[in-house]
Nucleic acid binder design. Structure first.
Lengths: 257, 257
DNA sequence: CGCCAAATTGACTGGTATCAAGCTACGTGG
DNA sequence: CCACGTAGCTTGATACCAGTCAATTTGGCG
């Protein structure tokens, strides 16, 4: 990895302390609070259609005409793009409070498939109704812009992870991201189910499923993670800061041979 | 590359015929028209501050307080992110009509550096003024949302390129993207200057500068591109469809050993 | 002219992909 | 209840693409 010239001062970036809270807790950290407030406002200002979907359900497909945006009130989604020559790519993951469909605004057509990873509650609003409501509720416009802005930030983070990290660190970064997303929403982050197959994780990270599997085994051997006996899709993260440090250092903490 | 299950119908995706026009022409293709109209509206509704910047100039840095959005009226920019542990990543490129700073909305702080790649004209507007104007000019809100939506789409495309294509195709895809961006803005796309070093291209694509250099040499040998004598940063694309086909097929058209 | 950044090219290395075999969990039907 | 099929996962052996290291060339500029 080589540097790109241009001298600069280094901005201090941030890392919120990821407080692990019990799974039944109401979110009380700031991010969780903001998500809850945003959902509250959406609920009252827009009266979205609510529905429950199940793992594998598709709420829109690439090519479908765009008229609605969707907000995830609970559950997990993956977004999958398909290129004209048949390459498939997981381009994003979605959690409670996240929006789905922004990328369709510019072309009037969805650009990817949105697929539920488990049972989820989806709120749906008409885009034109949203625009109307944004004019009467400036706070709503702020929320929408914030959500789009966050999506852009998150995409850049993915790009950075994939372009600059070796396989081990990529998988560690993925686990870190997932845990942090849970934590920010007041869900327990020290023990959770991945809800993605090794193939899906690999695709998302630009790796093969075999590499993901090997890395997970290695991380477990190094005790940065642990598998639940029964179901190697359920993992524990005994020491979250150690995982974060592993991503940054990109070398093994004694034990990873 | 393996498939991710989930049977599906394949949406027909698109590819606008990239008309190559002379460099002095006013844009007449639809994309170029829309960019011109958007700029027009921004100019009249917002009266942005205009200024000229030069190659290497920085219009904002990661960590700077966010108050303004910027629109590129001419020239080229790169966006560079820096991770907390010092990894640098080119996370985007910007052309005429593109906005800069969306990713700062959610945190109130810019998340990357915006650096001019040559002489450029930048328009700057206060974000709060823009929000006001969006309420009185719904068309303006549509333009802003469209721009953010496009940015998200573009990021996903990058991710797909980097995750699913080998080095040769990535570089070809990059050239394709650059040429198409020029073409959409009414600039000549069959012959242009790259304005990025090999290191910057490599960083953007998740490759080393040596690999980029080798691939460019190979593409030239295969006559998919040609270098300008003097300055190997100026390239010709004699057969644009052939380049596009090369990206999709991901194997060499006779001659590339 | 001489310096320095950028680019090219070659030789070698190493990290992931690929190919392949076998294991585990789970659901279905006999 | 068990046999069987299948999807997901693990692990090993091998291949190969791209990274690393290094030497050299090219071009821009004071």
């Amino acid at each position: 990895m080589q540097t790109l010239a241009t001298t600069r001062t280094t901005p201090a970036f941030n890392a919120r302390p990821a407080a692990v809270v019990g799974s039944r807790e109401v979110a009380r950290n700031s991010t969780g609070q903001r998500i809850a407030e945003a959902l509250q406002l959406i609920a009252t200002a827009l009266e979205p259609k609510r529905r429950i979907v199940h793992a594998g359900d598709v709420i829109y497909r690439a090519g479908d005409r765009f008229e609605h945006l969707h907000i995830l009130n609970s559950g997990f989604f993956k977004l999958v793009s398909l290129s004209s020559d048949g390459r498939e790519q997981v381009v994003g993951l979605r959690f409670r409070g996240d929006w789905l469909g922004f990328s369709a605004i510019s072309h009037g057509v969805y650009g990817c498939d949105a697929i539920a990873l488990d049972t989820a509650e989806v709120w749906t609003v008409r885009y034109d109704a949203l625009l109307q409501a944004c004019i009467t509720h400036p706070a709503l416009m702020a929320i929408v812009h914030e959500a789009m802005s966050n999506e852009i930030l998150r995409d850049r983070d993915s790009l950075m992870t994939i372009c600059t990290l070796p396989a081990d660190a990529r998988v560690a970064a993925f686990l870190h991201y997932w845990a942090e997303s849970l934590s920010a929403r007041g869900l327990r982050a020290d023990q959770f189910s991945l809800r993605l197959t090794r193939a899906e994780i690999g695709n998302y990270l630009g790796l093969t499923l075999e590499t993901v599997s090997r890395v997970l085994s290695r991380l477990a051997r190094a005790e940065l993670i642990a598998f639940n006996e029964k179901s190697r899709r359920d993992i524990c993260i005994p020491d979250f800061p150690a995982l974060a440090a592993y991503v940054e250092r990109r070398d093994a903490p004694a034990g990873l041979h």
